[in-house]
Amino acid sequence: MNKLDKVLYTAKAHTTGGREGQSRTDDGRLDIKLTSPGGAGQGTNPEQLFAAGYSACFIGAMKAVAAKQKITLPADLAINAEVDLGPVGQAYGIAARLNVSLPGMDQAAARQLVDAAHQVCPYSNATRNNIDVQINLV
């Protein structure tokens, strides 16, 4: 297990009711209703939150790598993230796909950037060797 050298930030959320509940961060910036995937409720679900968090974090990692390598990223870069939920034996698990769009960027340079970002992204490091993660250039 990797230990943090230094804590830069701690996110805090209070959740009640599980997948049919509510979650709120301590600063009030996030206050959401939760609903199971495919449920009739109006809320989001943990898999959607994971998809949003992973894709946002991965873009941050790409920007950090690009800055170090003095690469200009396309202004309209985007990631369509997909998170699957399903059974794994007697338990449940997730799998993730990040479909990365870097319009106008050379494919070889884009692949190198994405591979480097996958090494520094906190979500990638947390999921590595734990779940199936695919990083696709689209």
Rank of each mutant, 00 (worst) to 15 (best):
T35Q: 14
L34I: 15
E82V: 11
V83E: 00
L77E: 13
R24F: 02
L85N: 08
V120T: 04
K63N: 14
A61D: 08
L49H: 03
P87E: 15
Q22W: 02
P87W: 03
F50V: 07
A91D: 07
G43I: 09
C121P: 01
P87V: 14
D31M: 10
N129M: 14
A117I: 05
R29H: 14
A109P: 06
R97V: 13
D132S: 15
G28V: 08
L102W: 04
A51K: 01
G21R: 12
L49R: 05
A95E: 09
T72G: 07
P46E: 10
A78E: 08
G104T: 10
N99Q: 05
K63T: 14
K63C: 13
K33W: 00
R128S: 11
F50W: 02
G53Q: 10
A108S: 15
R128G: 09
K68W: 04
A40T: 15
D106E: 15
K68N: 15
G104L: 07
L113R: 06
V65G: 04
V120G: 01
V133W: 00
S36H: 10
A117F: 01
N45P: 07
V133T: 10
Q48C: 04
Q69T: 13
L30T: 15
V120A: 00
K33S: 07
S124F: 00
S55R: 03
A66Q: 04
S55F: 00
A81Y: 03
A67V: 06
A116Y: 03
I32F: 04
L34K: 15
I94N: 05
L77Q: 14
A40E: 15
A40M: 11
K63Q: 15
G60P: 11
